[in-house]
């Protein structure tokens, strides 16, 4: 590659991690066939998961994985925001607080006392929060983990100044396009697909499993109506509560629905 002038320099990409499992960052490394194209299109300036080399900010594009769980996180995300022209969150943790948002439904002190030998050393917040609770986010990419094709789409869209094609409708749309037989109708398997945001290409139903809701609530989720139908399929309140309380437990629609089944008398 020839040396580029400052004006034609590739956009600087940074990948940041907060409370998370690293799975979404790995989706970027998992691009394999496309990784060289990514490296050709952007300058990877900060990506500790992939390289120790660090290029100083500011950055054109920051991808942020993970949720905000400590006072230190709050300060750090603000600094990152200041250094980033565009900030895109990747994954359920950054977008909804992740699985660790289960703490939001209990007392965090009880958890630290149960887990750590010396809880006094732990400086943590009462809740696991999405990035957008603290700084302005330009775009949120859903998924636990994110879909690598969608990640490439988001990066491509950013590079060419267009809107990413990441539909916000239900997983059912993807099932029907694939030609998968509905597991809820044909096998009476409880499925979160009708209230879940598309993006995984309806992976689980294609393997005869109900949707787990990894991509969080779809654009207009009618969780109450789905729960009413699940009851007809024999699902009781405790299981309903757990179904909505997983990777996207902190997403508002799922949080409210799980709470509706938490103390229900049935």
């Amino acid at each position: 590659m020839t040396t580029k002038t400052n004006a034609e320099r590739n956009p600087k990409l940074a990948v940041w991690k907060f409370a998370s499992c690293d799975g979404c960052q790995l989706s970027l490394l998992d691009c394999e066939d496309e990784l060289l194209a990514v490296a050709g299109a952007v300058e990877i300036a900060y990506f500790p998961e992939a390289t120790r080399a660090v290029v100083r900010g500011p950055y054109d594009l920051s991808l942020v994985e993970g949720s905000i769980t400590t006072p230190h996180d709050v300060e750090r995300i603000k600094r990152i925001r200041k250094q980033s022209k565009t900030l895109i969150t990747i994954g359920a943790c950054a977008t909804a607080g992740g699985i660790q948002a289960l703490r939001n439904f209990t007392e965090v002190d009880d958890l630290t006392a149960a887990v750590y030998a010396t809880p006094a050393y732990i400086d943590t917040l009462a809740k696991s929060m999405p990035i957008a609770d603290h700084v302005f986010v330009d775009f949120e990419l859903r998924g636990c983990p994110i879909n690598k094709d969608q990640l490439l789409e988001v990066i491509s869209a950013f590079l060419h100044g267009r809107k990413p094609n990441t539909p916000t409708y239900s997983v059912c749309m993807e099932c029907k396009r694939r030609g998968t037989v509905c597991v809820m109708v044909a096998a009476h398997t409880p499925c979160l697909g009708p209230v879940t945001h598309a993006g995984c290409d309806a992976l689980c139903p294609a393997y005869n499993r109900g949707c787990f809701g990894c991509f969080g609530p779809m654009e207009t989720p009618n969780t109450a109506a789905l729960s009413a139908w699940w009851r007809r399929l024999g699902v009781a309140d405790p299981q309903l509560m757990r179904a909505f309380r997983s990777f996207n437990a902190g997403a508002e629609a799922f949080r409210k629905e799980s709470e509706a089944h938490e103390h229900a008398d049935h």
Partner: peptide, 12 residues
């Protein structure tokens, strides 16, 4: 109240 706006009816 019941409609999930999932789109299944239209695609089938």
């Amino acid at each position: 109240e019941r409609c999930l706006t999932c789109g299944n009816c239209t695609l089938v």
